[in-house]
Design a protein around this nucleic acid. Structure first.
Lengths: 191, 191
DNA sequence: TCCTTTATATAACATTTGTTATATTATAAA
DNA sequence: TTTATAATATAACAAATGTTATATAAAGGA
């Protein structure tokens, strides 16, 4: 019989994720993970075929952390639900910039596009219901807000801009209400 | 007298910039530059104290390329001038994703913030003049549009979304006109 | 108690990278 | 023609990294 397992697959993923949090993707190396676990590099390779595989697991773990955070952030409901999801995304970028970069700023040029139409349709339906916009208008409102939220989040994650919660919140409102007003009433706009 | 100079400082920067364009920042290595110039790695180190210095020069060169592109893009004026600058930023992200990443998606957390108030004030003044908004409103309009443009550009640069010129253009208009309408006339918006 | 199994440790290897030491060689002044 | 100068080439070094070969040792079954 072999010795009992001391280093689990899960502990490796956790340590690796912690490393990315602290030092970014480049900080994720075999020896750094081993050091954090107080072990040699061997357990990594008996649990994962190679580092890319571990990196993939860290990506999944990071996304799980993001979902959990978003969920609990929505619970505390400082904002109406739709806005809350945007603010949660932004706050994730602020609090976990390295995980954010890994998850949402990675190069997807090789990857196949993920199909999020189902989720997207749900949100659009909700917007339609609340605002009386057409399907196309609701879709556009959602897309444009999402781009704004992403832009802000990226700025904060990269340290391009300093995060101020009320500023971010105001921007979302400005744009939301602006587009909404425009779609609900196309009059009253000069040029 | 020493032999004539074959490898100029400028040719090194050009080769290095080309490398970043093709393979991203990680593709910028001593040996890759040397190979592109058909020379050894030595000329690099007689022209630059180290690779970080060359990387800095590439950053400057990339910014220069961006400015030139933006300028000539503004000349062809497919859009009104203010919108044209946003579209030029976006198109730079589409056509030169690696240079865009290097310039506008790099980690600025260590860097000191650049002071762009002068330039920003000019733009804000222009907006104020054209729209009759207050200084604060014009400033907010500009900031929010800029965030949107940045968000779109980042999406395209990372391959998160496929670029379609008319879609991007419509988004800018929606948000611009939406915010503008909201600021010019606060009535007419439900909830 | 001994033995088999395998988790982990140790150590080594290949590769890549920045950087430097040394050798070579083209150039123009002497 | 000779020679000093410095631009470039060659080669080597050290460090970091992924990965693999080998050694060690723990744990329960025989």
């Amino acid at each position: 019989m072999p010795p009992a397992i001391k280093i689990t697959r899960d502990s490796i993923i956790t340590a690796a994720t912690e490393l990315v949090r602290e030092k970014g993707t480049d900080g994720l190396t075999t020896r750094a993970v081993a050091k954090k676990l107080n072990c040699s590099t061997q357990p990594i390779f008996s649990n994962f075929p190679n580092m890319d595989s571990l990196k993939k697991s860290v990506l999944d773990k990071a996304y799980q952390l993001y979902v959990e955070r978003t969920f609990s952030s929505m619970q505390s409901c400082r904002y109406p639900p739709y806005k809350a999801s945007g603010m949660a995304y932004i706050e994730f970028a602020v609090d976990e910039p390295e995980l954010f970069k890994m998850l949402f700023m990675r190069d997807r040029n090789g990857e196949e596009r993920i199909d999020d139409t189902a989720e997207s349709e749900m949100i659009v339906a909700m917007i339609r219901e609340r605002t009386g916009l057409s399907d196309e208008q609701a879709h556009r409102l959602h897309t444009e807000l999402w781009v704004l939220v992403h832009g802000l989040a990226v700025m904060y994650a990269t340290g391009f801009e300093e995060y101020k919660a009320d500023e971010a919140s105001e921007m979302l409102s400005d744009v939301y209400l602006g587009i909404l007003g425009r779609f609900q009433n196309k009059e009253g706009v000069v040029e």
